[in-house]
Design a binder for these strands. Structure first.
Lengths: 337, 337
DNA sequence: TTGAAAGCGCTACCAC
DNA sequence: GTGGTAGCGCTTTCAA
């Protein structure tokens, strides 16, 4: 057990050269005789040498590890984003340390602090919903650790970001509802302090305004986008007898729960109320009726985030990317045949 | 940018003590005067000192990082397992490096080799479907890096493992089908060289045998558990006019696809053929009809795996854990009212 | 109870 | 082109 691995000095001894020479040879430095280089490389291979990344990291101050922080690990959106990041950085020889904040500020802070201790060369993150104080991220930047934000932005300079175009997504979805003949369209937005809810509400309002419809008081509802809150919302509308002819939900979990309540109570979807969700969860297509939603291409977002990270590690300037979303139209919003 | 962080020697200088003393004080060694300890700790806090994990790792040969290898990152089962692992090791102060093999042997080998270079103190893994040569894992063990397998086992000694009880799961599911009155029950098993398919087939056969039913040639079908293969399977049965009254699928993706084909072709579920899947994917309940399946509690599996890992890192003996599954009965298999 | 010093494995500077 | 050596930040003998 615990057999020691070969080091450059093992190789150096065998070949009667210095460790410097071995190091240079292995790193493709020009300052080694071709003949020596060959012998070193060959011997290294023979001895099964592999560089110790820890030692390299300590010496150079740079690891080959990137950190990624997501609010929730078991949400399709984040899983896809992780997969996207992985697909890019893996080829570049990096590892991925993943941590989830559970949407808690305190946990996020601890994670960032832990990563800040030289463990990673960069951090890709979607901020926790709870977070309003960004100094932990600020510290990272000050330490020279580049950050790439995705999904949720932070009001902080000096970092790259890649997000879906929430405004455009909500705008298109609302337009679609209008085209289906809906006039009284409600919007269910997220509660937490996250930039995207605002962008979506703006998109909704803009589309309504462009259609010459005034969004009245009470048309926009603010709550967590959980199934529980979605259910409660539907019950509330039912109780008030105030059913709109269209609703744009800022999340599919809430939309799904509301749909169930409506159906149970004889409110037909989409005939009575057309519904569009957000995120395009994998199960949307299996709902009854299948739920229209806005696809955000999280895998692509992850890939772009990773590319920006690689770029930042190379010393590139921060950059902001906004990706288009796509409205997936299914039964739940199709009033017109 | 890139402000240097405080080191123990910074603290040592300020306090006019040696780095040894600082190190001891910070690590709670008994060999420091209480008064000195206090001053050191206080100064460390004041200077915002945080130990450099890289340096510690190089010195001690131990990181505070655990590696986790999954075949696919965007499968609910593995995502839940990851979440389970994370929930345990995080509290113990460990980080998680995650890598996915894509079910490819070559990629898995590279990942393991990369992790083997001292980056992690242990590896939690579910083997790639393609893998039949386990020497890369063998190397890890030889290096003293403990391994905990989950989901899929390896014919290798010296490692811990935690798996669901596939035999019992398949047995119960088959019993359930029998109780619904099914007699001609087919089994669709996975193709790849993975232990669990065998266990499931055995469970199926045992239940059939216990019911005094002979599993005839052609009743067990072997294929990848993908939607495409599931669809092809259903079409094949349809073409032969050989529809059984029950099918136990070893995966929900194949089951779902087959169900769609059956429904399109007028074969009623569960009246004509009762169907049970495996894994209990999150969307099972939304299918038409909702799909019965076997829940494997991947989150718990992840937690157990993490506990075994922590145990192994402490030098504990390897241990094998088998967790019960639970049959979730939905419409797709309910012939009896 | 404390300090000096070695050394984990590697890179890079300086000298030859 | 090559070797010697310092040192990254830390832990841990060994002496005092």
């Amino acid at each position: 057990m615990a057999s020691k691995s070969t080091t450059i000095s093992d190789i150096a001894k065998r070949l009667n050269v210095s460790t410097s020479t071995v190091s240079r040879a292995l790193n493709g430095s020009k300052l080694v005789a071709e003949e020596v280089r060959k012998r070193v490389v060959q011997e290294a291979k023979k001895m099964g040498y592999a560089p110790n990344p820890i030692a390299v990291a300590l010496k150079t101050g740079k690891t080959k590890t990137i950190g990624m922080i997501v609010p929730l690990i078991n949400r399709n959106y984040f899983v896809e984003a992780i997969a996207g990041v992985e697909s890019v950085i893996y080829d570049a020889g990096y590892d991925l340390i993943i941590a989830s904040s559970g949407n808690f500020y305190e946990r996020e802070r601890k994670i960032v602090e832990s990563l800040a201790q030289g463990k990673v060369v960069g951090v890709i993150a979607a901020v926790a919903a709870e977070t309003t104080d960004y100094s932990h991220y600020r510290n990272l930047i000050d330490k020279g650790v580049p950050i790439v934000m995705f999904d949720r932005l932070m009001p902080l300079d000096g970092m790259s970001s890649v997000v879906q175009d929430d405004f455009q997504g909500a705008y298109n979805a609302t337009r679609h509802l209008l085209e289906q003949g809906c006039r009284k369209i409600f919007h269910y937005r997220g509660l937490q302090n996250v930039s995207m809810w605002n962008a979506r509400e703006k998109g909704y309002r803009q589309a309504m305004a462009d259609a010459g419809i005034t969004v009245q008081k009470g048309w926009v509802h603010t709550a967590l986008t959980t199934p529980e809150e979605g259910e409660r919302y539907a019950r509330k509308l039912l109780a008030k007898g105030d059913i709109p002819d269209g609703i744009l939900f800022s999340g599919d979990f809430a939309a799904k729960a509301a749909m169930e309540v409506f159906t149970e109570n004889g409110v037909r979807i989409p005939e009575d109320v057309a519904i569009v969700g957000f995120v395009n969860e994998p199960w949307d297509k299996y709902l009854t009726p299948p739920l229209s939603s806005i696809e955000q291409f999280p895998y692509d977002i992850g890939k772009e985030a990773a590319r920006l990270m690689l770029r930042a590690i190379e010393g590139g300037k921060p950059r902001k990317i906004v990706l288009d979303t796509e409205l997936i139209i299914r039964q739940s919003s199709k009033k017109l045949k």
